[in-house]
Design a protein around this nucleic acid. Structure first.
Lengths: 191, 191
DNA sequence: GAAGCTTCCTAAAGGGTTTAGGCAAACAGG
DNA sequence: CCTGTTTGCCTAAACCCTTTAGGAAGCTTC
């Protein structure tokens, strides 16, 4: 009588990620996911501990995807090429998958974060700097600066911050990458 | 019999902002606010259109406060002093009022945003660059860079991004401001 | 002290979350 | 096969948050 829908945690998380891109990460709800599979809400609780668990898993998926894209983009590149490639991975991913990108910024507890693809992303971020001549601790400062710029720019841009004013966002992005490259090649000594 | 609680929109928004700082902006709920005033939920709907309205008003309050702090901090300063002062206003506000800071990033519709203190903040941000020698369109690119760095750094820091690793966040922040100052004084020509 | 406005209330409907317990489909092994 | 176990999805119910409708008590003013 009642055909099985074939639910698994993986398929639910995947569908949850698509839902996030469509309606926004904070609109992702166990109920909405159940509707999408044409199944009663309670059925999902055999595959997901709770609503928070769903969001965490979507976040982990997004981090994996970003890390994969970044690893591919950085292969065989260095210096400004690497900088640009990594930056564009962040920006392109955020524009293609706004819900997932938001998910990737979802706070994780320390243990979960340590086991996530977030550490791979951090390593790749640091790898960019191998093409520049920076010793510790300036290298770490630079990593944090790059992370801040990429995250900040993409956040503001997707929030519509630069939409309705000249010059267009594309140009600013290119010039900001020029500026960062220049800064990394001429990192100031401690005053 | 039933004493009046003396609710007004202003007091509700103020209390909502405090609540946001205590439990997080997205945990701010009409019900929680009613509990805080020891009043039935429905009573608040004479003062607030709905839950979204509450959040928007908290966002506007936060923007006002940040603009006020920034204006005071920038008075009589220029160049790196102004850069540092403005940056610290953002960071200090976010640490003192994490819920409000999140609220300030809450998306507003165009009309609301145009009438908010957000435009004052944008003007002040641009005013920092008067101490540096940048012509348009590079000035706009630089404004966007600064906004991205401040927002990005503060977001990552409050999310715990730099908490458990050396060198400490304080030092990175100082060196990043050095680096930005240096970059603004040596802004690269278009390649 | 009555009129009218304001402030807060009760009541109710609708939706999301989560748990407990049940029945039937899928899958083993004999 | 067909029988026992596991698994997958169900119903039912409790709880919380949102929002609207309509009522009653307090404050103001004359």
């Amino acid at each position: 009588m009642m055909a099985r829908a074939g639910l698994t945690t993986e398929r639910l998380v995947q569908a949850g990620a698509e839902l996030a891109d469509e309606v926004g990460f904070d609109q992702v709800t166990v109920s909405a996911l159940a509707r999408r599979f044409d199944v009663k809400v309670a059925s999902l609780y055999s595959h997901l501990r709770n609503s928070q668990d769903l969001k965490t898993r979507i976040a982990l998926l997004a981090l994996e995807e970003m890390a994969d894209h970044a690893a591919e983009a950085l292969a065989g590149r260095s210096g400004k090429e690497a900088l640009t490639a990594f930056a564009n991975v962040c920006r392109d991913y955020a524009r293609a998958h706004p819900g997932r990108y938001t998910a990737a910024r979802h706070p994780l507890d320390d243990a979960t974060a340590a086991g996530s693809a977030g550490v791979r992303i951090a390593q790749l971020n640091r790898a960019i700097l191998r093409g520049y001549d920076l010793a510790e601790p300036d290298q770490t400062h630079a990593v944090r600066l790059l992370g801040s710029v990429f995250h900040g720019y993409v956040s503001l841009e997707t929030a519509g911050g630069f939409a309705h004013s000249a010059p267009d966002s594309e140009e600013s992005w290119a010039r900001i990458l020029d500026a960062l490259d220049s800064l990394l090649r001429n990192w100031p000594a401690r005053p």
